[in-house]
Amino acid sequence: MYLPGFNLEGKTALVTGAGKGIGRALAIGLAEAGADVVLVSRTLSDLESVAQEITSLTGCRAYPITANVGVREDVTAAIEEAVRLAGRIDVLVNNAGMNIRTPALEVTEDEWDVIVQTNLKSAFLMSQTVGRHMKEHGSGRIVNVASVGGHVALRTGVVYGTTKAALVHMTRILAMEWGKHGILVNAIGPWYFHTPLTEKLLANEAFMTEVVGRTPLGRIGQLEELVGPVVFLASDASSYVTGQTLYVDGGMTIYGF
């Protein structure tokens, strides 16, 4: 057979930042591909809503777990609970992220710390902890949600761009170290998508016009368009792909913004 499998039946995926936006869409998409899903974020009510949606739509199991994934103690406890409930973790999607749009000359130390903790430290702590579990089983998939801002300079702020560039490079290094354990580490780099976090920005007609003008496909991305790339990287279809960042950007990174 030359057509590889995209089916995730029998697998368990863990998604951080799973209560809203990109994380919610990816969690539901992974379940539609057959995976049971562990949902992690700070807000239980959001996770319970997503879990109910997953079970009603797909019949797959969904396990909501609250944690601050930028804190090691929370990460350790969350992974222990996830393994207790689901048995194992086959796929990790590091999606938790945030931004504070502040010009570089005005960035405070507190802003720096919270963005780095949320966007970068959390992905490392989750990868390290889940990586140990995956090493024991001799296989695993890790997908980091980076950004086009990790590849080109954007007006999203110096701290955000720095964390996403670091996440892209961390993806390469973990792939290099963990390939021998059967753990594949990749990333996706989205451009602008319709989410609760981008709603106000994209409501600005001038901003939207500029974004669309810099996008060869001439439109903003829809959340479901991120699901296929993540399912690909989570499945056997990508069994010889590691250390890569797949830009899901309507072609924007061809010439930047």
Rank of each mutant, 00 (worst) to 15 (best):
L3Q: 14
L92V: 08
A104G: 06
A153N: 13
Y160T: 03
T58L: 09
L184V: 04
S147G: 02
T43N: 04
T118L: 07
Y63K: 08
L154E: 12
H169D: 13
V50S: 02
L167F: 12
I220R: 02
A123V: 04
S45Q: 08
G70A: 00
V107T: 07
I183H: 11
V211L: 01
L202H: 00
V50C: 01
L44D: 03
I89R: 06
T102P: 03
L30N: 05
I115P: 08
P196W: 09
L26F: 10
A82S: 14
V116S: 06
E109Q: 13
V114D: 02
L184F: 14
A146D: 02
V158A: 15
V75N: 03
V159I: 11
A78L: 06
A146M: 06
D36T: 11
T66D: 08
T58Y: 13
T195K: 02
T102M: 10
G19D: 02
P196S: 08
A206V: 10
S239F: 09
Q117E: 11
T253R: 08
V114R: 11
T171D: 01
G228A: 15
H151P: 04
A35L: 04
Y192D: 00
A165S: 14
H181C: 11
G221A: 03
G19W: 05
G87W: 12
D249I: 10
D236A: 13
R219E: 01
G140V: 03
N68H: 14
E32G: 10
V91K: 03
I220Y: 06
P216G: 10
G131M: 00
V93Q: 01
E48G: 07
M252L: 14
M1N: 14
K135R: 14
L85I: 09
W112Q: 06
H133K: 09
D36W: 11
I100C: 06
I188F: 15
E109D: 15
E106V: 09
V75H: 03
A33I: 14
D249N: 15
F232W: 11
D249V: 11
E205S: 12
I65R: 07
A234D: 02
A51S: 08
G10P: 14
A82N: 09
T209M: 05
R172H: 15
G97N: 01
R42I: 08
S239E: 04
S147F: 03
V40F: 09
A51N: 03
L85D: 08
S56E: 12
S239L: 09
V83W: 13
M176C: 10
A33D: 09
K200F: 06
E111F: 08
L57D: 07
E73D: 04
L202K: 00
L14F: 04
G34Q: 01
A25S: 14
G150L: 05
D110H: 13
A18H: 12
I173R: 11
E106F: 15
S122A: 04
A175I: 10
L201R: 01
T102H: 03
C60I: 05
M126P: 12
L3M: 15
